[in-house]
Nucleic acid binder design. Sequence first.
DNA 1: TTTGATAGTTACACAAAGGTAACTACTTTA
DNA 2: TAAAGTAGTTACCTTTGTGTAACTATCAAA
Lengths: 99, 99
Amino acid sequence: MQRSMGILGTRWKPIIIYTLRDRKARFGQLDALIENISRKVLTSSLKELEEDGIILREEFKELPPRVEYTLTQKGKALIPIMCQLAKWNEEYYADGISM
Amino acid sequence: MQRSMGILGTRWKPIIIYTLRDRKARFGQLDALIENISRKVLTSSLKELEEDGIILREEFKELPPRVEYTLTQKGKALIPIMCQLAKWNEEYYADGISM
DNA sequence: TTTGATAGTTACACAAAGGTAACTACTTTA
DNA sequence: TAAAGTAGTTACCTTTGTGTAACTATCAAA
């Protein structure tokens, strides 16, 4: 648990993972999809998630540059858990806002 | 997700919840069962978990005083999720240490 | 009267996480 | 020559979480 929380236990990382659950996304897309996140936190969260093997970063050497982020297998394995958490939240708060 | 993480996203709260999964415990027992936690953090975590309706605090006016902590229904509903997280951890790190 | 047990609280400090705003680098387009 | 687009970085600051050590309150027993 301690280690799991070391990986996930921040404000934004679970949101980033959940956002990537069914799509790949570019840096700017994540910045737009996730409201209120700062680019700085997005950068550092993505870097740490990559180091932890949760997401994959693919750099395309085009112009303008393009970078795509996707979940790894290990990252995808977290999705059902996060869905359960979202469900728990809905069930016990029941205000319709879970993300 | 943001709110769920606001409740669980600290170093010790998931450990406390997991420790209470199948038992009630007194303050001093939790302090002994959970290695390395400080009484201060235990106090504040228990207080916040109580405010969030995850645990129940029962005070017995005896001498010496006795206080028992148990999970509420809402708290118990988190247990399967935390077990899945522990399983995820074991699966992808596979060193046998999950708590 | 001092010790022991229980369940904390208080003061202080440190480190990590998060926020804001300005800046960088590269190249194409106007 | 200047703006626009992409993907960041950097400096600075505030907030939150955690840690240590000492202290509190109450009563019983020695």
